[in-house]
Write a protein that binds this DNA or RNA. Structure first.
Lengths: 235, 235
DNA sequence: CGTGGCCTTGAAGTAAATCAACACCAGTGG
DNA sequence: CCACTGGTGTTGATTTACTTCAAGGCCACG
């Protein structure tokens, strides 16, 4: 928030035309004419550093956030103060969609890596939505992605032994890339529903067994086939 | 499926006008005129008995199901054959929403109690959607409900000790009603990510401690204050 | 050169899985 | 009617997995 690296409303039709959003996201289906028209509206480009809070649980929902690049955790707090990370989101994801329904924010969103975001004010989105039904399909796709991701976390990251769950998480984190930046043990615990100690122990074990290899500060490569063996008793 | 108790396409504008859907659900915002118009379309009223499968994971998504009454579990299978119940849904919920996006069914839906359902074919819904933007808001509300429920399950039913999770589940199951019908220990295990034995042991313990009381075959009443004490170290 | 934050590790205790047996009941067929 | 069966729930004994509590290491940072 306070540590935002850049922020502005400058010529957004222009910005969106070139930015990632154009290809992957919300306005993909809009014509150039429409884009130009909406460009006048309040769409704000924001940057966050690791640890920055995009919004807090219970905040009035006034905007949807379109992640352009980076990594963000969505966490929920229980009445007793404990917390659980319910999802990680990367570039191409829309979060705080509940704002469109006038609901308060249901999660706290915290950047885990340097992250750039489009902040789309709700009123604007609702206006656009009324005018261009094509946006609906896109919005539905984002809703769908949220549900699918939530279900995936439940089945993959909350089922089975801690060892299996860590393996599955590492597979997800390392997906596609050659190496990846490890998260804090505390976050891993909060994602898997374990203590930080068990997360640490299992990761240490994976390193000893050469399933994980250190390639830099907090950077690792994984042995995907080994992880798949651990994660799924595929018989 | 084969055990459907009733099924038909009879005068649906009429049916919807009187059925629960009218008040709680998808077409709540439509005018009578619109309802009549859509009544000609393919909306099928189906009944299921406990154990019946509404649809299977991987089925081509051709329809959205609006639960009118009853109880349905949504489960996902892991490659190794194990499974996890990701949500329970009751009357007033829409499921298989992913069908609207042309995706295959992501869950298997199984009735746990006698259940009545409106089956809304996708093409129809999409056509209606194009004509009446008001339906969007309603659809978004259903998407939102799915995400919110999924997140709730993750935070409440997959976090903490088995005892705490069982307590939270019982609070959810008994919500509002004086007594409720207990689910099989196997299903409870599949919801909480435990074995059936631990589910059984904890429920037996709750009975011994008078937190649960038997009031009929598979029917129980709960001591909600006791459960709340167990479920949340609310300090 | 401390200091604080994160990670690791150990030892001990506890919670849950596992394996196995049995009770209970509804349904089935003698 | 009884004996048999399969499904579901309960319970016990044992092993294993995880938490808890505690200590110490490592490293970035002031």
């Amino acid at each position: 928030m306070d540590q935002s690296r850049f922020e502005g409303t400058t010529e957004l039709a222009q910005a969106c035309r070139v930015c990632l959003c154009r290809d992957t996201a919300l306005f993909r289906d809009l014509s150039d004419e429409e884009l130009t028209r909406f460009g006048q509206l309040q769409i704000i480009d924001v940057g966050f550093s690791p640890g920055d809070i995009l919004y807090r649980q219970g905040d009035p929902g006034q905007a949807v956030f379109m992640i352009r690049d980076g990594l963000v955790k969505l966490e929920q707090f229980l009445p007793d103060g404990s917390q659980r990370i319910v999802r990680l989101v990367r570039g191409g994801t829309a979060i705080a969609l509940e704002a469109l329904l006038g609901t308060d924010c249901e999660h706290q969103a915290v950047a885990l890596r340097p992250t750039s975001v489009c902040r789309l004010s709700c009123e604007v989105l609702q206006r656009i939505e009324g005018e261009t039904p094509r946006l609906h399909r896109q919005l539905m796709a984002f809703w769908h992605a949220s549900v699918a991701e939530a279900d995936k976390w439940l089945t993959l990251l909350s089922t089975g032994s801690a060892r299996v769950r860590v393996a599955r998480l590492l597979l997800l984190l390392s997906d596609g890339e050659a190496s990846f930046e490890m998260l804090s043990r505390e976050d891993i615990g909060a994602m898997l529903g374990t203590t930080t100690e068990t997360a640490s122990r299992i990761i240490a074990e994976f390193r000893r067994d050469d399933v994980l290899r250190v390639v830099g500060v907090r950077r690792f490569t994984v042995n995907r086939t080994a992880l798949m063996l651990i994660s799924g008793p595929v018989v």
